[in-house]
Design a protein around this nucleic acid. Structure first.
Lengths: 138, 138
DNA sequence: TTACATGCAAACTGTTTGCAAATAT
DNA sequence: ATATTTGCAAACAGTTTGCATGTAA
């Protein structure tokens, strides 16, 4: 167990989650290589490939617990699958249809202007933007 | 059958869809009262309430056919349900968590600025924006 | 030693599909 | 007459859950 694992274990404890073998392993996959976008399915495959023995149900549970703990964020996305994003800060996405994958858009410069007044008694919770790209015609 | 029905029947024929009783009825619900956001479930309920006898499977098929024909647009949305929008023009949505409903944002003035350069060989297919609202604290 | 986590299979939800009966052309 | 559409039920995909077993504290 290296330093990173201790840090992760501590984050999990803080969130009221016991640092179990499965949660640490999945956490290591998720948080040790920059920003990632995963589905339950893809993370499960990746874990098995890395010889981490974990059931799909546990992957689902873990993703939802990590999300509840603020370690992950769910990405609004049309279609059946749910994507989780290790980048929990406010940012947006390109969706590349060809490869069925999501790419972060650095948000610093991105601005949405001209919003009409919000309905009375409401405030903005979150803004999701997905820019769907296709291969250009030539 | 009134004038509206003829117009709809013609649109369906144009799309290669026979104007059947079910498609005309669902079309009438969808297209005769301004912009609407429906799920298969909600449209099915609404049809039954209006004494239009149609199976849920047919509602699904019809929504997908209407979408393929460009009469409807699917709304990108986190979660399990699929929403269809009768407003097929380029526009965005408020999502009101409290009532689990979508509201159009008139797009004329809305602008997204500061997009980083697109990945090479790609172009924008579509931009989806969902602004999630919550009840304001006071 | 006890409360929490895991794995499995079964349940569940939203959606699609195969096929026989009904309908539009 | 014949190709398309419908309804039903069964199939399906993604996700959640109940419960017995295993594990962290």
């Amino acid at each position: 167990m290296d330093v990173q694992d201790f840090v992760l274990a501590e984050r999990l404890r803080q969130a009221g989650l016991r640092p179990t073998r499965q949660r640490l392993s999945l956490g290591a996959i998720l948080f040790s290589a920059g920003d990632r976008h995963v589905s339950a399915e893809s993370l499960h495959k990746e874990a098995l490939a890395a010889r981490i023995d974990v059931s799909l149900a546990t992957v689902y549970n873990t993703l939802n617990q990590f999300k509840a703990a603020g370690l992950l964020r769910e990405v609004a996305f049309e279609g059946d699958r749910t994507f989780f994003d290790t980048n929990t800060s406010n940012h947006f996405h390109y969706y590349i249809a060809e490869t069925d994958s999501l790419v972060d858009i650095g948000t610093e410069d991105l601005k949405v202007l001209g919003l009409p007044p919000l309905p009375a008694g409401t405030e903005i919770d979150r803004v999701d933007i997905i820019i769907r790209l296709r291969k250009s015609v030539r």
